[in-house]
Design a protein around this nucleic acid. Structure first.
Lengths: 113, 113
DNA sequence: TCAATAGTTAGCGGTATGGCTAAGCATGAT
DNA sequence: ATCATGCTTAGCCATACCGCTAACTATTGA
């Protein structure tokens, strides 16, 4: 296990933006060139380019340029670390009896005595 | 479907920081007061407080003050939206045949003719 | 050749983030 | 009453983020 996990930080950061998530969802319906991705966002091209850069940096998309058109596509495996972390945490979190409600109840118990 | 999903953005943003993730993992082993959470991070209290604020804002933790001690605990259900989004995306992404490799292969095919 | 198209780069501006110190305010112990 | 403890607030600093415009490059089509 890596102590610092830059991978996860990059992934979560990339996913934290609505525009980027919408781009991913759009790409899940098929690869697309930059301009086509930009259109529904209402943002300017350089701005979208930046978002694509973040997504690519996180490994969530891959791009290739053919002529003057850059085609973007999702990289499905990239979500794996997120799923793994989530499963790991859920395993740890589940069955925990020391949530705050329980803690509060414990306090009330103690107060009775 | 919500167009803007502040929930997801808050969650992903909260999870994008290694310190915050480590705090969550620490809390998965049991509730703890602020000072105890701060200790292993090597950060100052106000800084940790801020992180806790972000986690709480995202709904990932809950806190309660008893006397001068504030106890923090995880809120396991809070991860649900993340899992849901992940499942949704995986469903969309899977079986996709237009990844970049395939796109590249398609190009090569076309070039042959 | 020339012009439209598709990206790209550079750089600006406002805001948010993540760290800090210093000082304040309760609460608990003496 | 006093002091230590545990948190809280206020505010500073540097850097990063997200939007933009303007200007540039590189294809493609007429």
């Amino acid at each position: 296990m890596a102590k610092h996990d830059p991978d996860l930080s990059l992934l979560f950061h990339a996913l934290a933006d609505p525009t980027r998530r919408s781009i991913l969802t759009r790409l899940s319906r098929g690869s697309a060139p930059v301009t086509e991705l930009a259109e529904p966002t209402g943002l300017r091209l350089p701005t979208v380019m930046r978002h694509l850069g973040v997504l690519q940096e996180a490994g969530l998309i891959a791009t290739a340029k053919d002529g003057r058109v850059r085609t973007c596509a999702i990289v499905p495996e990239a979500l794996a670390p997120v799923g793994a972390w989530l499963d790991e945490q859920r395993a740890l979190w589940e069955g925990r009896l020391d949530r705050l409600e329980d803690y509060a109840m414990k306090l009330m118990e103690e107060r009775k005595s």
